[in-house]
């Protein structure tokens, strides 16, 4: 399988009054064709910043300070504005966080999908309308409702509209940024299975950003776990479930109830996420890690491959395996 997206050593910092907030530092991962990658981590760990960096949506006071993002071989971070216009939506699109606010309230949902189609594909208005209707049908909404305004839809339907919009120009890669936030559990499950079905049907590559570990493990091929702006572990779902190496990954797995093993005790992770402003060189998890030793407080562990396809950033692993 060929690689669609590869992110290498991506760092995105934000200028604040108190100093530089290293929201994302040295993040590397890749997504294969037709693969669903789960990017997971707690709130504020930089998942959305990674997504926005890939999409080139970071604005002042934020800045991508290092790294590269290759989409089918083209470096997105070096692309000019006109290159970007061509790439956006045709190659890479996004289902945004809280789709409730992602639709412009004064235009019909159809107009907003048609806008994307007309912008990128050489079709006339009538064809665009036809395609919009088909897209809405695809996500389970009556095609004739393209003339409705966002406020005339329920939250779950708006989310479906956002998915239809993301697929408008047959993109290769779709980033779903916590797109089920604010929906009830039942609707969440429907939306997620819709994304999964469409992904299989259209052979899409998807980055599924979430903090819902059980959901991600149930549908994703590979999982990347983020903590406080760093990627701590990246492997296949099976490998993560069976042989998670990083203490944070293990703690995260223990913090979620397991339906197949209800006897197991759910344990929370003590402490809280460190402040990312002016954070010193260290392993960012050391303040909450039960196994932390001196080296963790002084150096940042390298994110490296310990087994084929299994990447971890932890000194423990090094100590154990030489």
């Amino acid at each position: 399988m060929s690689t669609v997206l590869s992110v290498e050593n991506l760092s995105t910092f934000f200028k604040t009054d108190k100093g530089i907030a290293k929201a994302v530092e040295n993040v590397s991962f890749s997504v294969d064709e037709g693969e669903m990658l789960g990017l997971i981590g707690e709130s504020g760990c930089g998942k959305t910043t990674v997504a926005q960096s890939i999409l080139r949506l970071i604005e002042y006071p934020g800045k991508v300070v290092a790294g590269s993002v290759y989409l089918n071989g083209k470096n997105l971070l070096k692309a000019t504005d006109s290159d970007l216009t061509g790439l956006r939506w045709r190659e890479i699109s996004v289902i945004p966080q809280s789709a409730m606010n992602a639709l412009n309230p004064v235009y019909t949902v159809g107009d907003q999908i048609i806008e994307a189609i007309l912008l990128h594909d050489n079709v006339n208005k009538k064809e665009a309308v036809e395609r919009t209707k088909k897209l809405l049908e695809l996500v389970g909404i009556d095609g004739e409702r393209w003339k409705s305004y966002p406020h005339e839809f329920s939250g779950g339907m708006k989310q479906r509209v956002a998915i239809a919009m993301a697929l408008a120009c047959n993109p290769k890669l779709v980033i779903s940024d916590e797109s089920t936030t604010g929906l009830d559990v039942l609707t969440q499950a429907q939306v997620i299975s819709l994304i999964k079905n469409l992904q299989k049907k259209m052979n899409l590559s998807v980055i599924l950003i979430s903090h819902d570990l059980p959901m991600v493990t149930s549908i994703c091929d590979r999982i990347a776990i983020m903590y406080a702006g760093n990627l701590v572990e990246w492997a296949s779902t099976e490998e993560i479930l069976k042989n998670a190496e990083h203490p944070y990954s293990k703690a995260l797995l223990n913090a979620t109830p397991d339906l197949s093993n209800p006897e197991r005790e759910v344990t929370s992770i003590p402490g809280s996420v460190p402040n990312l402003v002016n954070i010193p060189t260290c392993c960012r998890f050391h303040t909450r890690c039960p196994y932390a030793f001196d080296r963790c407080r002084q150096e940042t562990p390298e994110f490296k491959e310990i087994k084929p396809g299994h990447y971890v950033a932890c000194f423990l692993e090094e100590e154990q395996n030489g």
Partner: peptide, 11 residues
């Protein structure tokens, strides 16, 4: 968010 969406769409 819809402004960011418009940007992401390439508008």
């Amino acid at each position: 968010d819809y402004i960011m969406m418009a940007k992401a769409k390439g508008v």
